[in-house]
Design a binder for these strands. Sequence first.
DNA 1: ATATTATGGATATCTAATGTCCATAATAAA
DNA 2: TTTATTATGGACATTAGATATCCATAATAT
Lengths: 161, 161
Amino acid sequence: MQFSKSTDYALHALIHLAQAEDRNNIGVKELSAILSVSESYLSKIMSKLRKDGIVRAVSGVKGGYELAKTAEEITFLEVIQAIEGRQQMFECSNLNSKQHQLLAELSNTEPKPKATDRDECLVKKVMDGAEQHLHQYLREHTIQFVLDQATKRCNYSINKK
Amino acid sequence: MQFSKSTDYALHALIHLAQAEDRNNIGVKELSAILSVSESYLSKIMSKLRKDGIVRAVSGVKGGYELAKTAEEITFLEVIQAIEGRQQMFECSNLNSKQHQLLAELSNTEPKPKATDRDECLVKKVMDGAEQHLHQYLREHTIQFVLDQATKRCNYSINKK
DNA sequence: ATATTATGGATATCTAATGTCCATAATAAA
DNA sequence: TTTATTATGGACATTAGATATCCATAATAT
Ligand code: SF4
Ligand code: SF4
């Protein structure tokens, strides 16, 4: 039940892209140096982000990555899902058991149950509910939220000079 | 980012123990038959639940397992943590990078930061916050909550006769 | 004593995460 | 056009963790 390192790398890479908003097309070379990850591995991660429309990529000399939308629009949830996929956290592995029949088959107690409710019990619903709560929280937080902290610090440094 | 099958098995085993509250000491034999898991594997799972004080076990003839507390007192969270452990979902793997120094070292912006805040940035705080939300939800739901559904159905069956 | 049951160590197998390598395509610059 | 640079994607290797089995031992009801 842990997020993969890839998710960690993806978040940090995006933050770097967001911080260097002025400079366009930051290559995997620079990113991998900052994150202390190999270029080959980080490439796979950046490709996933590109496929999900989170960053744009351009090949060739002076190529690289840039955010495909503003940092305000990039939520933690979509980054995590781009990397980890979208399978549900809890998958029933007991659907043929007597227990499942007892818990999930409500067709006898309720005259006309919806088809979608027929094969789920409250275990599944609690776990799915938990996932939805997690998702909601992650949807409400964006890369910009993290950036604000860094920006605050940056402004302070500038004023200091 | 998925719960393990072991967690699935643990929840189902506990529900069976809770449903058979009258009969004490239900063996791994019966449980494994109901869940369609091998006895050896389920043994490990039950041991974890026992170590965390969720079930009681008694060896020997007529031995087996029973809930160590009421179904109302057993939360989803403690079951999941008994099986999956208690590591945090997000672990920083970038603590030596320049980026971390920029994001996390706030000692310059705030005169006297608490020691606990010094080595965390908002990425970490968002992820930990998400985990806390997930935990809170799982803490609020108990085995009894699932049981109520089954009981309702059971009562209906009885009335039907 | 005997049969039964849980426990824990050792070990095997399988799967997903992590990591590397290379051939190819795209593109800016010379 | 040629060259250097960069992203892309397939293949593959390695590692770590989840899943699964086996067995020796302890505990306990009969
Ligand atoms: S629906 Fe409920 S009883 Fe059936 S397999 Fe899923 S969690 Fe188990
Ligand atoms: S504290 Fe923030 S910047 Fe530092 S390693 Fe953790 S997530 Fe990354």
